[in-house]
Amino acid sequence: MKKYLLLLHDDLQTIQNLSPKEMEGLVQAHMDWTKKLDAAGHLIAGEGLEEGSIQIKGKQSVIKDGTFLESKEMIGGFYLLQANSLDEIIELSKECPCHLWGGTTEIRPIMQYD
């Protein structure tokens, strides 16, 4: 099976405006989806990410803060999945709970080195 990184781009304004009950529903939806992926043999790993980040750039290793609040979206989490084809991972990704709250999924195939 081929591996794919599924990046979850959350709409910051939408996420920040969720009620506690809606946030609980979002978390539960991800837990349920994770169990479904695991049972079907697609899940390798998955985690939520905190808002802040650090970027290290160039030969001089310049360090700067990332994920600024002016951004309209942030990467709120990821799943590392496996599937037989890109078409299969696309179909699986359509069910990602982040879409229910205006989020976007980005699929990145993992390079295979022989």
Rank of each mutant, 00 (worst) to 15 (best):
C98H: 08
H30V: 11
M31V: 11
K3Q: 08
E95D: 13
Q16C: 07
T34H: 05
I107E: 09
E91M: 10
E22P: 08
I90A: 00
Y113H: 12
G41V: 09
L6A: 03
Y4A: 11
E73L: 00
G76Q: 00
H30G: 05
I44K: 15
D11Q: 05
G103H: 03
K72S: 04
S71E: 10
D11K: 00
E47G: 13
G41R: 12
L5H: 09
G46E: 12
I110E: 14
I54A: 08
I90Y: 15
E51K: 10
I63N: 00
C96F: 12
Y4V: 03
M31R: 14
K72W: 02
V62N: 00
Y79S: 05
G102V: 13
E106M: 02
H30P: 10
T105R: 02
L69H: 04
M31Q: 09
M1L: 09
F68T: 13
S71I: 08
G46M: 08
D38L: 06
F68N: 11
K57G: 06
E51L: 15
S61N: 15
I54K: 00
L8Q: 06
I107Q: 01
A83S: 07
Q13S: 12
C96L: 04
L18M: 09
L12C: 13
E88N: 11
A29R: 01
W101F: 14
K2D: 11
I110G: 12
D65C: 11
Y79T: 05
E51G: 13
I54T: 08
V62P: 00
K57C: 14
I54Q: 08
S61F: 06
K35M: 06
E51I: 14
Q82I: 03
P109L: 03
Q13R: 06
L43M: 03
R108S: 12
V62R: 00
L92E: 05
S53Q: 10
L92P: 02
K64Q: 14
E22M: 13
V62T: 09
E70G: 08
Y79A: 07
A83V: 06
E91Q: 14
I75T: 11
F78E: 05
A29P: 01
L69G: 04
K57N: 14
I110Q: 15
M23F: 13
E47Y: 13
Q82V: 05
S53F: 03
T67D: 05
H42V: 12
I90Q: 07
L5T: 00
Q16W: 00
E51C: 10
L7H: 01
T67F: 01
I75C: 04
I63W: 00
E24P: 11
H99T: 15
G77D: 09
S85M: 05
K72R: 06
I54V: 04
L80H: 07
D87A: 08
A39R: 10
E70K: 14
G102Y: 09
E73K: 01
K36V: 12
H42A: 06
K3R: 07
A45C: 03
E91D: 15
I56F: 01
I63Q: 01
G66N: 05
K57H: 13
Q13K: 09
G41C: 12
L100W: 15
S93D: 07
D32K: 00
D65W: 08
L86C: 03
H9K: 10
E95T: 15
I89C: 04
I54L: 11
Q60V: 11
S85D: 12
K2C: 06
M1Q: 07
N17S: 15
F68K: 10
Y4T: 02
L80M: 05
E24V: 01
R108I: 02
P97D: 01
